[in-house]
Design a protein around this nucleic acid. Structure first.
Length: 253
DNA sequence: AACATTCACAACCGCATTTAC
DNA sequence: CGTAAATGCGGTTGTGAATGT
């Protein structure tokens, strides 16, 4: 809480600074040139120093965003293809609105680009198909305020629950320690590559759950550990890597 | 032609997390 | 270990172009 207040204060200071002397709005070609030239020559120390050393009246944040989303040389300038769109849809199903995680699996694409594409096109398309009676599953609406998002994080979020739910109803079985793929053609499960083992649990305070009489497997599990956001991130990242490595078939869960 | 609406995308904002000291 | 600064992320807003009336 205290930290959060500080972050807000820090941002407010930056904002105050911005209104005094920082430029805002669209970047001019000259600014782009300065930023690009500075970074290609000297690299990025800290973003605030980049802004200063490149002689830009921009916040470090703004410089970072411009570089990441527009100036980076390895960005793709091609329109998003049908294949990429399908990939976005699949990954969004798996990861939710974790645009940076999705972008990490799409070379040349940025989180902002994917987020915009999702919001302006895919979301609409899916909605239309829903309205016309298509059996397309609507993407989960994530009208989440920052506060709600934080609440999700605090409770472990629904993400793990969703993954478990998917795993439970799909051909992938996620056990503590063992994983099998049930081949649709044969009923004999075959061993899979190492699946990241989920050693966290969904409750903030497992002891409290036990005290409350919630005798969940997680609460009772000797593997129970506090489940931080970084645990969550690692788990989800590894889980998706795993799914993508197995087969296209699994991506449709 | 003039205005309104829609669309796509760039950029901003607030907050959480990570890093440096 | 605590604090401040830096960074990263996702939601939202702003803006210019395209399209419709």
């Amino acid at each position: 809480m205290e930290r959060r207040k500080r972050a807000v204060v820090s941002d407010q200071l930056e904002t105050k600074e911005d209104t005094k002397m920082m430029r805002k709005g669209l970047w001019s070609p000259d600014e782009d040139e300065r930023l690009y030239s500075h970074i290609t020559h000297y690299g990025v120390g800290t973003w605030s120093s980049v802004a200063e050393l490149a002689g830009l009246k921009r916040s470090g944040k703004s410089c970072r965003l411009r570089w990441m989303n527009y100036l980076q040389p390895d960005l793709s300038r091609e329109p998003i293809s049908k294949q990429e769109e399908d990939l976005i849809v699949s990954l969004q199903k798996l990861l939710g609105n974790r645009w940076s995680a999705i972008a990490a699996r799409m070379p040349g694409r940025t989180d902002n680009e994917i987020k915009n594409y999702w919001n302006s096109r895919i979301k609409k398309k899916l909605q239309q198909r829903m309205n016309t009676g298509g059996n397309y599953q609507s993407p989960p609406e994530v009208h989440q305020t920052a506060g709600e998002g934080a609440a999700d994080m605090n409770t472990g979020g629904n993400l793990q629950a969703d993954l478990y739910q998917q795993a439970a109803t799909s051909k992938v079985r996620v056990d503590h320690g063992s994983t099998t793929l049930h081949n649709s053609s044969a009923d004999h499960p075959r061993p899979l590559p190492q699946l990241p083992v989920f050693t966290g649990q969904l409750l903030l305070d497992p002891d409290a759950a036990v005290r409350n009489g919630e005798q969940t497997a997680a609460a009772q599990s000797s593997l129970c550990v506090p489940f931080s956001k970084s645990h969550e991130r690692n788990f989800v990242e590894e889980y998706v890597e795993f799914l993508m490595s197995v087969s296209d078939e699994l991506l449709e869960i």
